[in-house]
Design a protein around this nucleic acid. Structure first.
Length: 220
DNA sequence: ATCCCGAGGG
DNA sequence: CCCTCTGGAT
């Protein structure tokens, strides 16, 4: 079996994006993104949980501490009490307060619109930073590779199996394959596919719009 | 039981 | 490289 050319991968990846665009329509953020500060905190809280769970706590959270200045003077214990229905709530509360403090101390109370600066914030990695850049600032600098995107890229044969646990390498593979105008689609729509259909354990290939062009679906 | 729309730390 | 943090969904 000859190795697939990059051109073939690109063609397939673009077709993937085209079909997912048809299925999901324009991308949308379901978290509180009224301003970049709220977005950073909301995305930070969303790790390992759902937007719906996050949206249950953010109204009270931002009612009590609406700005970086306000949250900077909260204690992690106070914040933890408000967000305790979420997983990892103690760590997230600590990160939220430290984020607010750093935004005030180092960035004049404004969330930096820059990947290198964003990832300096406690609890903010590339995945979170990518979403903040995309949704909060309209900047497309990379692809937010989470476990879903990672898995889908692997199943579609767009990133080697050896990169399965290295999101940075998966991101680099996708950046090389896909033209930039599709990066934002990956950030949002591939994640939805991963949640609804391309499940880690039991993928529902029978309902998948990509089944006929997916090597993994063909092999079962 | 087992996994997750991550990230920090050892 | 590995572990930890955590509630909720399945």
């Amino acid at each position: 079996m000859p190795r697939e050319t990059n051109a073939a991968k690109r063609e397939r990846a673009i077709e993937v994006c085209r079909r997912l665009n048809e299925r999901y329509g324009p991308v949308e953020c379901f978290l509180d993104h009224a301003n970049p500060f709220r977005l950073v905190i909301s995305v930070l809280l969303s790790a390992q949980t759902t937007d719906a769970q996050v949206n249950k706590v953010t109204p009270e959270l931002f009612r009590r501490w609406p700005t970086p200045e306000a949250m900077a003077s909260a204690t992690p214990a106070e914040v933890a009490e408000v967000i305790k229905s979420l997983g990892f709530y103690k760590t997230k509360a600590k990160h939220a307060v430290e984020c607010a403090q750093m935004i005030v101390a180092d960035y004049g109370g404004k969330v930096p619109a820059d990947m290198k600066e964003l990832v300096k914030l406690p609890g903010v990695g590339r995945k979170t930073a990518n979403i903040v850049l995309n949704v909060g600032f309209g900047i497309v600098e990379g692809i937010a590779v989470d476990t879903h995107v990672n898995r889908i890229a692997h199943r579609l044969g767009l990133s080697p199996k050896t990169h399965a646990k290295e999101p940075l390498k998966t991101e680099q593979d996708l950046l090389k394959i896909l033209p930039k105008e599709y990066w934002n689609d990956v950030n949002h729509q591939w994640i939805m596919l991963g949640r609804e259909i391309c499940d880690a354990r039991k993928p529902r290939c029978g309902e998948c719009p990509l089944a006929d062009i997916c090597p993994s679906a063909k092999m079962g």
